[in-house]
Structures are given as C-alpha cells and as structure tokens.
C-alpha cells in the first residue's frame, strides 16, 4: 500500500513548483523609473490597476487611462488598443516602458488581466528569478545531506555499527547528487544571465572545490576493501570534509565580490534570504520547496537503507548456510 505522506509529498512539490513557475512577475513605477533614468528602453512587465474607467483616445490611436501600479503609486497609462471588456476590468498586466518627458507609462502590449498575486520584478533577472525555487533548495539540500553524512560518520565512530556507515555513505551520495544538480542548474542559468556557462565566480569556484572534496570521499571508499577499515576512514574523512562546507557555501562567496546574488557587492539583494528583503510570497514557496526536498531526501535515504538491510541479511544467510554445510 502506498503511504499517504508520499502522495502528500508529490502534491506538495507539484503545487509549489507550479506556483513558483506560473506566478506572473510584475513590477511597478519604481522599476520603470530605474530603466528610464539610465535611458534603457527595454520593456518590463507592470501590473496596472484601473483607477478611473474613462478612456481617452489620443491622436495616434492609443488610449490614455488613469491607474495605479501594484504598490499603489498613481500614474497615467497609455494602452496600445482598447481592450475588450474594459468597463468591467480590474486592471491589466502590461509590457511597458516609462516615457520620462510626458510622465506616462507606455504599454507596448497587454499581456493579461491584473494579477491578484505576483512576484516583484528584479532588474536584470526578470523571469529568471524563479530559479530560486529549484536551484537554492538543491544547494541547501547539499549542506543538509553532507551534515547528515557527518552525523552518521560520528555515530559510526562511537558505536562501530556498519549500518551507520551505510547511512553516512548514502547521505554523502545524495549530497553529491544535489551538489551536481545545483552546479549544473546554476551553470545553465549563468549562460542566460551572465553570458557564459562558467566564469569562475567565487560561488562557482567554491562549489567546484566542494565537488572535488566529496568526489574524493567516494574515491577513498572505493579504494578500501575491508569493511571496518573503509567505514572508519570514510567517517573521519566525512567529518573533515564537512568542516569545509560552511566556509565554501556560506562564507567565501559572501565576503568576496562576484556576480552571484548575495555576493559582497550585490546591491539588489545582499545575502538573499537572511536580509529579509525577499518578497513574502517567494519566501513561502522557497521554504515549502526546501521542506519538500528534505522529505524527498529522507525518503530516498530510507529506500537505500531498506535495500542495504536486505543485502546485509542475504549475505549473513549465505555465510550461515556455508558454515552449516562445512
């Protein structure tokens, strides 16, 4: 029988992924003003609430309407066409830029209705900001998995039980998987945000070193034949390896200037999560995804351990059978 929490986990991750991906990104007047100030004419998505259902047709065929943005700042908006159902509409999501001379928000396109729920527009990121719901839980899971690996390493050294060694090894394996996924997803994102897959940003350098450190853990394990010796050495190694993790994940990339959000010279976000500068909705989805990933990690660990226990029992049975014959 399928346990109920597995269904909940599936629905949980599905719902929060969908919310993270599908929630529209909408900026306000302040975002438009930043680009207008420097003469950047790019279009950005802006949520506009209609203040007065009175359209004024202009000479060039566009329509002028009074409204406010999602933060409550008033402005005049120029719509490219008269939308159907205008008199009942609450507002629109526009692709717009700011006209500094006439103090108007000029929409090039109406993308949809006013979104009741939206994420803020982050200059330079746009839709790509949504990577935070997938990439960041992966890197946090890396830390958690390596921490679990160290925990069972210590437990093995105290109790000398090979099951703890297996737990330590599987946690490190999952940690390595999460670490690789964080690296690859970050690299794909970097291609579109920074223009290159890899540019030795402090964050990229530190995760690369981390991959090498934990790659060496598995090299060490595969090099030793005797179970007890392998368990003891890898337990000690996992403790030593985890000592470096906080430094590479939390400290080094934050005290050095770099391109990754949260670097020392990041004016947009600072250390993204801890500063409290993140949108409340985004934070809820991020933490929910992290929780889902933690449960998923526990589930994968338990599957591996069930297989391990059966394997161990089989081997013990084989030995007992061999002894009975002799």
């Amino acid at each position: 029988m399928i346990k109920w929490w597995k269904i909940v986990l599936f629905v949980w991750i599905g719902v929060f992924s969908a919310l993270g991906i599908m929630t529209p990104i909408a900026g306000g007047l302040s975002d438009l003003a930043i680009f207008a100030e420097v003469g950047d004419t790019r279009l950005i998505p802006v949520a506009m609430k209609i203040a007065d259902h009175d359209l004024t047709e202009q000479e060039d065929g566009t329509f002028l309407v009074a409204g406010e943005d999602k933060y409550g700042d008033d402005a005049m908006f120029v719509l490219p066409e008269k939308p159907a159902g205008f008199s009942e509409a609450e507002g629109y999501l526009l692709d717009a830029r700011y006209d500094k001379e006439n103090h108007r928000v000029v929409a090039a396109e109406i993308l949809g209705d006013y979104p009741g729920w939206s994420f803020p527009y982050i200059p330079g990121l746009g839709e790509r900001a949504k990577i935070i719901f997938f990439h960041v839980p992966m890197s946090w899971m890396t830390v958690i998995a390596f921490l679990v690996s160290m925990w069972f390493g210590i437990k093995y050294l105290r109790k000398k039980n090979l099951i703890d060694d297996a737990k330590s090894a599987y946690a490190a394996g999952l940690g390595l998987l999460f670490c690789i996924l964080a690296t690859v997803t970050g690299s794909v994102w970097a291609q579109f945000n920074w223009g290159t897959f890899w540019n030795w940003d402090p964050r990229e350098t530190s995760i690369f070193v981390l991959l090498l450190i934990y790659g060496a853990y598995f090299t060490l394990r595969s090099a030793i034949e005797v179970d007890e010796k392998r368990a003891r050495l890898s337990a000690v190694y996992s403790i030593l390896a985890f000592v470096t993790v906080p430094f590479f994940i939390f400290i080094m990339p934050r005290i050095l200037p770099g391109l990754h959000p949260g670097s020392a010279d990041d004016v947009n976000a600072g250390p993204v999560v801890s500063s409290g500068g993140m949108d409340a909705g985004m934070r809820v989805i991020l933490y929910s995804m992290l929780l889902g990933c933690i449960v998923l990690f526990g589930w994968l660990m338990s599957i591996q351990m069930r297989v391990f226990r059966i394997t161990q029992k089989q081997e013990a049975d084989d030995i007992a059978a061999a002894e009975a014959i002799s």
């Binding site: 990577i131 998987l177 994102w189």
Partner: peptide, 22 residues
C-alpha cells in the same frame, strides 16, 4: 534568451533528470 521562463523550465527538467538517474 527571449523567453526566460523556459530557462527556468529547463532547469526543472535537469533536476528531474538527476532524480531519475538516482
């Protein structure tokens, strides 16, 4: 490049591929 949302979808796909591999 023009539809950044699909970069995010690619990333989700990569994560699924990783879990599938596991």
């Amino acid at each position: 490049e023009q539809n950044s949302l699909f970069v995010v979808l690619t990333i989700v796909l990569i994560i699924w591929a990783g879990l599938f591999f596991y």
